[in-house]
């Protein structure tokens, strides 16, 4: 066959590449979040799905618009904006007005992500930044619904009479009461499975865990941050339990946004350390601050602020945990 020299590409090694790219990783994250989303539709009604779709659409659109307006390469294909969209929706109560996720998407994508330089360059987790921003509308953000009993009516949950402001299990815990001790209360198993009031994505620790296990199997993420984070919270709430220690601890773990935060927000790539040791330190830090805020803070929840605070320290943790290079320091004397 004729050999044409002109057509040969000369590029530096390596010449092989792993098939795993940013888009396939983000796709895996979306898959991992799906069980929790399906569950949310089951307990809160189809509105959970609508809100999620609106949130995803607005994140993707804002990213597209921003990049088009500034004539930057379009990156919506990497699916990271879609992941941010799902995570924003997961942090909303199902009763919020439709414009709220849109506002959240704008804040997350334009302010928290793109103004810092886009994917990988943002300092704080965009979805968490959006959540904190949306607390400017505290009433909307803290009106929780009890899980729907009559699932067939759940499509229009906003009109449902059940949709009243409800205290979350976490607020009982703050007062030192176990949710199961309160009238009509929730058992620990309800908390684990997710049969409790809360924001769309946080209620079912079990399904979030299944999603996370999938990510571990696909080697998208490592165990370090979640184990360090949840482990720290478990240890502290066991030692400083308000009441029966083990069940108090378990309730602290499964109530609120700890699992969503630890499994899917704290170990967001861009805003967590790159070294394994750094990830453990970061997870422990998140755990310490979370418990501190839950005990002494103004609100019942502490996960978002804990992660945001640790986000700011990531660069220093990375530098502090720089691995000893092969044949470095301790081997020099041999």
């Amino acid at each position: 066959m004729e050999q044409n020299n002109q057509l040969l590409t000369v590029s530096p090694s390596p010449h092989l590449h792993s098939p795993v790219g940013t888009a396939s990783i983000m796709g895996d994250v979306l898959i991992a979040l799906t069980p929790a989303l399906i569950w949310a539709c089951y307990v809160f009604g189809m509105r959970a799905l609508y809100l999620t779709l609106i949130s995803v659409a607005s994140c993707v659109l804002f990213e597209l618009l921003y990049e088009k307006l500034l004539r930057k390469p379009v990156t919506v294909g990497d699916l990271s904006a879609a992941v941010t969209g799902v995570l924003i929706a997961f942090n909303l109560p199902v009763t919020v007005p439709i414009w709220l996720p849109v506002a959240g998407g704008f804040f997350a994508i334009v302010i928290a992500k793109q103004l810092f330089g886009g994917i990988g360059k943002n300092i704080v987790n965009p979805a968490l930044a959006a959540r904190v921003f949306l607390f400017s509308w505290p009433v909307d953000m803290t009106t929780f619904t009890t899980p729907v009993r009559d699932r067939f009516h759940s499509l229009f949950i906003k009109q449902d009479l059940d949709a009243l402001a409800t205290a979350t299990p976490l607020s009982y815990l703050k007062e030192g009461k176990l949710p199961s001790e309160v009238q009509g209360g929730y058992q620990t198993i309800d908390l684990f499975i997710g049969n409790v009031p809360g924001v769309i994505g946080e209620v079912s620790a079990l399904l979030l865990l299944i999603g996370f296990a999938y990510l571990c199997v696909r080697r998208v993420t490592t165990w370090h941050i979640p184990v360090a984070y949840i482990g720290t919270v478990a240890l502290l709430t066991l030692v400083f339990a308000k009441g029966a220690s083990v069940s108090f601890m378990l309730n602290e773990l499964f109530a609120g946004g700890l699992f969503l935060g630890a499994l899917f927000m704290a170990n967001d790539y861009a805003t967590s350390p790159v070294t394994p040791n750094g990830r453990v330190i970061y997870g422990i830090g998140c755990g310490l601050i979370t418990v501190f805020l839950r005990y002494f803070g103004a609100s019942a929840e502490g996960v978002s602020y804990a992660i945001l605070i640790m986000n700011l320290l990531v660069y220093y943790i990375d530098r502090f945990t720089k691995p000893v290079r092969f044949g470095g320091k301790k081997h020099e004397k041999q």
Binding site: T22, I25, T75, D78, S80, G118, I119, G120, T222, Y269, A270, T271, S272, P273, V274, T275, P276, R279, D318, K322, P323, V324, R325, F326, G328
Partner: peptide, 17 residues
Amino acid sequence: RCIRCGKCVQACPMHLM
């Protein structure tokens, strides 16, 4: 674009970043 996944740090046989 680097997404800060840290995979390169785990892969480096010379334990670099």
